[in-house]
């Protein structure tokens, strides 16, 4: 089957770590194409909490992800992991997510977090709010663990929300921020600023956006990915 949207698979590297080989295999086994209807797409909606906003300097503290498939989220099918980071460039984000540097309780090494994330995601479509940042953070962490770049199709709920809005050009700044969208779509905002909490909220938002887009004929993966304003 011709997968028009997939990046060309990288040349197999015999020295790549096992987790990365396994990821590439599940990527290759996933049979989504541009005609895949929304109902059949597995969306992995995720969020990361980081030490800051600098992709070069900052690091991931936690990853949360849930899968949306066929208009449903199974609470069992989720990822919640907390990463133990020794290095902590900037103390000011502590207040936001409440994870302190060196806090070891329930936390795992970054490479283990990456491995679990890739295993959870497989070849599904990644979805995040302002996804570019989270994807860049993850790519850096995967790279550090010996893997390559994420191969998955990525959708951005910020972009989808803009497409679902009636007159996006009239929108004020901030309209497509997660807080504002939660108000617009009546999504209760408890546990904001924890990765799993934000991933869950973003998943609810995705469901509502998909419905609105579907009503306008956006009902396949190809249509979801198409311009205007495709995320990545």
């Amino acid at each position: 089957m011709f997968r028009w949207f997939k990046k060309k698979p990288p040349p197999p590297d015999p020295n790549a770590p096992a987790f990365w080989k396994a990821y590439l295999e599940s990527m290759a086994a996933t049979a989504y194409d541009k005609k895949t209807p929304i109902e059949e797409i597995g969306f992995v909606v995720f969020d990361t909490e980081t030490t800051g906003l600098d992709v070069q300097e900052d690091q991931i503290l936690s990853i949360g992800a849930v899968r949306v498939k066929n208009w449903q989220i199974s609470v069992e099918d989720r990822l919640e992991c907390y990463i133990h980071q020794e290095y902590y460039p900037d103390g000011k984000t502590v207040a936001v997510h409440g994870i302190l540097p060196g806090e070891k309780r329930h936390s795992i090494a970054e490479s283990e977090g990456v491995r679990r994330f890739l295993e959870f995601v497989g070849g599904d479509v990644l979805v995040a709010h302002h996804a570019a940042f989270d994807v860049a953070m993850l790519n850096a962490a995967i790279h550090a663990a010996g893997g390559g770049k994420l191969q998955n199709t990525v959708l951005d709920t910020g972009v989808l929300a803009r497409r679902a809005a009636r007159n996006p050009q009239l929108a004020r700044p901030g309209t497509f921020g997660l807080d504002h969208l939660c108000d617009t779509y009546r999504i209760p905002q408890s546990d904001r600023h924890t990765a799993p909490g934000d991933a869950f909220i973003t998943a609810l938002l995705l469901l509502k956006l998909l419905h609105r887009l579907q009503k306008r004929g956006v009902d396949t993966l190809g249509a979801l990915r198409s311009a205007p304003g495709m995320g990545l």
């Binding site: 208009w71 449903q72 989220i73 199974s74 609810l204």
Partner: peptide, 11 residues
């Protein structure tokens, strides 16, 4: 019980 819930969306 909460850990096994399915969240379902209906139009």
């Amino acid at each position: 019980v909460s850990q096994r819930v399915l969240v379902q969306y209906y139009q």
